[in-house]
Simulated assay, not measured.
Amino acid sequence: MKRFSVTTSRPYDILVGENLLPQVGALLGEQLAPCKVSLITDSRVNGIYAQVVMTSLMENGFQVSKIVFPEGEHSKNITTYKNVLEALSEENLSRSDLIVALGGGVVGDLSGFAAATYLRGIRYIQVPTTYLAAVDSSVGGKTGINLLTGKNLAGAFWQPSMVICDYRTFDTLEDAERLNGAAEAIKSGMIMEANLIDHVLARDYEHVIGRCVSIKKSIVEADERDTGMRQLLNFGHTIGHSLEKLSAYKIPHGHAVARGMVVESRAAFRMGLTDFDASPFLTETLQTNGFDLRIPYSREELLKYALNDKKISGDNIAMVVPEVIGKCRLQKIPLSELGHFIECGLE
């Protein structure tokens, strides 16, 4: 087992290893006294992993209840969020109690937002069960839900008390879900560590998770509130989030980000924002590994949702521009040029 310590406004450890789910209660008990725990998960993960985690918690003195909602991005909405808050209240959780988010990015984001806002903030831990959540969304304290106009538009910064990642849970993932995580890991390689990409392609999960966690840890520690360099982690996300919304989330997050990285790289080169065109490398790498990179929407359709991007400040938007494989920078462009930027990125 590897341990990483994140030094943010609320410091916490990230534990990465094999067969950690049966140890969740013991690992948690090393840092927290027994208390009430509300385990939040989705309908798919509930049938696979919930019982082993609940048993581990109860064996270590925790009083456990469970909240389950339907799997999928469509559950990441204000109705599910409300239902979770009501359930927490019915269980009489107090500020000294705890939420355990067991699942992928949807479970983690929604549970974290509930933790941030219930009683104005209670503790929670992340137990990611997907590759995507392990390499990205479980770390860094971004929580939230989707609104009708776009993705992750309501939320809060709320750091977990611990992250416990058992990568044996990836054994039950379908190929499409593995690709979701691979895209985010390739993104981390693109912005900061080129040789990470080879490990992603080799499915060297332990190495990839460790390096992605280390990269994100260093960025989050430097910019916890996402006002500067943390925006590098959004490479491919301006277009990616638009694709998710336009497809009614039929294009999953990682697959959308993969397409977004290609479009944004091509656009940055064609607009003269960089001398390096990363799009041929990304296209070959992603297509060889099973990604569909087609963009079935027009410039106007993509622009509509891109204008809700959280990297917009005033009349500008910060785009992530590759300089070489393994190094990117932020480049502000006027919002009036965003439509042209998107057009330049489309084939």
Rank of each mutant, 00 (worst) to 15 (best):
Y118D: 02
I122S: 03
P334Y: 02
E301G: 07
L307G: 01
A267R: 02
M1N: 13
G105N: 03
T55Q: 14
V68Y: 00
C328M: 05
E221T: 10
S89A: 08
A267G: 12
A202Y: 11
P252W: 13
K2T: 11
V68F: 01
I251S: 15
T283K: 10
L153N: 02
G47N: 10
A50M: 06
Y131G: 00
A156V: 07
F276H: 12
E337P: 05
R225Q: 13
I219K: 07
K66M: 14
G104K: 03
F291P: 01
M271E: 07
T172S: 13
E193Y: 00
L147G: 12
L148G: 09
K327M: 12
S38Q: 09
C35R: 15
I333L: 14
I191H: 02
L307H: 06
K310W: 11
P11Q: 11
I67N: 11
L196R: 01
E177T: 12
R120D: 05
I219N: 01
I325G: 01
T288Q: 12
A133N: 06
T117D: 03
P334S: 00
Y49K: 00
V53E: 06
N234W: 12
N92G: 03
E244Q: 11
V6D: 05
G189S: 14
V84R: 09
N195C: 06
L273Q: 06
F235P: 00
V262W: 13
V200R: 04
G240C: 06
D166T: 13
A134H: 07
G140K: 03
S336R: 09
A278H: 10
G105L: 08
L153H: 04
D42W: 04
S279F: 05
G155L: 02
K216A: 03
F281T: 03
N234D: 14
R270K: 12
E71F: 14
A134T: 06
R168Y: 03
D166C: 03
R259W: 07
A154I: 07
G103H: 04
F157H: 04
I122R: 08
G272Y: 11
A115M: 03
D292L: 11
Q51H: 15
L179C: 01
E301T: 13
L201R: 12
N83R: 10
W158R: 02
D136V: 06
P280S: 08
S75E: 04
A50I: 08
I239H: 01
L85V: 02
S96F: 11
R203Q: 08
L119Y: 13
L98R: 03
I239P: 00
L273M: 12
L20N: 06
D275K: 12
H199P: 09
A268G: 15
T238Q: 10
Q231A: 15
P322M: 14
C328P: 03
V213C: 05
G339K: 09
V324Y: 03
T169P: 00
I317K: 11
E59L: 15
G155V: 04
F69A: 06
R178Q: 15
D226T: 13
L110K: 01
R120C: 02
G272W: 05
S161P: 08
L93M: 09
R168A: 09
E347S: 10
I145G: 02
F291W: 04
M261R: 14
T227G: 04
S38F: 08
L28K: 02
